[in-house]
Amino acid sequence: MSRSKLILLLALPILAGLGVGLWLNQVMAPATDLAPETRVGGDFTLQSADGPVSLADYRGKVGMVYFGYTSCPDICPTSLTMMASAMKLLSPQEQAQVYGIFISVDPERDTPANMKEYAGYFHPNFIGVTGTPPQIAEIAAKYGAYYKKAEIEGSMGYAVDHSSTIYIIDKNGKVEDQIIHGASPESIAASIRRLL
């Protein structure tokens, strides 16, 4: 084997490695590379039982935003209970600075009244809001929240498949953390406390 072929042979795995590395770099580009306009979150206005609610109404406070629906027997109540448990880890003074917004991803069945009752059951600082299907779709897309009606057999008619993420909102209305399903109340409270 000639010397140049040997070098090529030795170099191949290195080149291949470099290629994979570059590819990974492309695929797994860190979130910080995203342009500001592609960051998740942002302002919205939706209907509550007590009138329109905008995220901008809560400037100066720290929030938790969660997308779900009231016919959800398990995942949503679990998440809202987590959020409420996190609240209970905060002092009353801290709690006064924290809000929760439960956004319906089932605008056809949920009403402002039942969203209010549902969210308020978990904590008095939690409100429930809904809107028209296009409004909900637009806001969910801004937050990177997934939901989709799933026709299922049985008497429910349909369920709503949805991502289960608690968005932690800073005092300026920006998403500062995304807490995926199953995180402990302690970690949620810690995330909130950093922003208070």
Partner: peptide, 18 residues
């Protein structure tokens, strides 16, 4: 009324997309 003593296996944070 379920209080939170959940298994933590699915839990965690995702970085905020800045």
């Amino acid at each position: 009324k379920i209080e939170m003593k959940m298994p933590m296996k699915h839990g965690g944070h995702m970085p905020a997309k800045h």
